[in-house]
């Protein structure tokens, strides 16, 4: 194994982590402020990808599609919050799980209704096509670097939003004492809708960016959703910082596991066997990591104030 390959894999892990962070940030924000567990977050990711693909096909521009994906996911999020989610804040987690599970069914089948069963086409914008040389003599796709950069910008933007703005102050207040901020005269219903739409927009952005790398199809949100849950549980539910570190940990662990485990096993058994068993072990790795972390720290690495 060369240094160049290790560096490339590390970047891959980082990119996966950044993408998971965009999903996990919304989930953890929604949980932190409203105490709501939202399984339908993956559907908003799908909405973003479909919006981007559709608009990009109409206009011929990925960038307009990207804006559309933010708008569509935020709008879908706001509508869902107004119609359904708002009734769930006072319910227990069981009702929340179930209602948002029902939303997944409706979003998936509804999207298939509108767009059909075949995957949509979404390409990387010309500006970000191709690969660049990295130190060590290898090449790396520009687009993946752009995702890492976009994720870093969003993370920084979230930090500024939460620590420096009035909205952020309300969010922090909402996280530490939900009843109190209502009593202080903050319009809590609007705040909740805004936070939910913000989380949805982040998911939509992730969906659009990843849609250009993968296939835009119904059900694309579900594997990501489960990974994002692993991330926030590892990080500590409700903690943005935890989501960031958890996302990077999961991204790097998953990528390195898929890459190194088969090689490690190949020292002991035949290559074909090593590939199969290593592949099996790698797909379980992040769940094992999660179980170990929760066994030691039952509330994640960075437990939020309540939750």
């Amino acid at each position: 194994m060369t240094l160049a390959l290790a560096l490339e894999q590390l970047l891959n892990g980082l990119q996966l982590g950044v993408m998971l962070f965009l999903m996990a940030a919304g989930l953890t924000l929604i949980f932190g402020v409203m105490g709501l567990i939202n399984l339908a977050h993956g559907s908003l990711y799908m909405v973003g990808a479909f919006a981007c693909a559709t608009v990009a096909a109409w206009t011929g521009s990925f960038w307009i599609g990207l804006v559309a994906s933010l708008a569509a996911a935020a709008a879908a999020g706001a509508i869902v919050e107004l119609v359904v989610i708002r009734r769930l804040y006072d319910r227990d987690h069981l009702d929340q799980v179930l209602a948002t599970f029902a939303l997944i069914l409706m979003f998936s089948e509804g999207t298939r209704w509108l767009f059909g069963s075949f995957p949509l086409y979404l390409d990387i914008p010309p500006l970000l096509q191709g690969a660049v040389a990295l130190p060590g003599g290898t090449e790396y796709p520009v687009y993946r670097l752009a995702i890492i950069l976009a994720g870093a910008i969003v993370a920084f933007g979230l930090y500024l939003l939460i620590s420096r703005t009035r909205l952020g102050m309300r969010i922090r207040a909402g996280e530490s004492d939900r009843e109190m901020i209502g009593a202080l005269g903050v319009d809590i219903r609007t705040l909740y809708t805004v936070v939910f739409a913000l989380g949805a927009a982040l998911a939509g952005l992730a969906g659009a960016m990843v849609g250009a790398l993968q296939s835009v199809q119904v059900g694309m949100g579900e594997p990501v959703l489960i990974l994002a849950f692993v991330v926030i549980v590892i990080g500590g539910i409700g903690s943005i910082k935890g989501a960031l570190l958890g996302a990077l940990l999961v991204g790097v662990t998953d990528t390195m596991g898929r890459f190194l485990l088969p090689k490690l096993l190949a020292l002991f058994v035949a290559p074909a066997q090593a590939g199969m068993i290593g592949g099996a072990a790698a797909s379980m790795l992040i769940y094992i990591v999660m179980a170990v972390i929760l066994a030691v720290k039952p509330r994640g690495l960075f437990p939020a104030a309540h939750a």
Binding site: T2, E8, Q9, N12, T138, T255, R258, F259
Partner: peptide, 10 residues
């Protein structure tokens, strides 16, 4: 498939 593509490259 980033991890696998990296292996292909190497």
């Amino acid at each position: 498939y980033a991890a696998e593509i990296a292996q292909m490259r190497a």
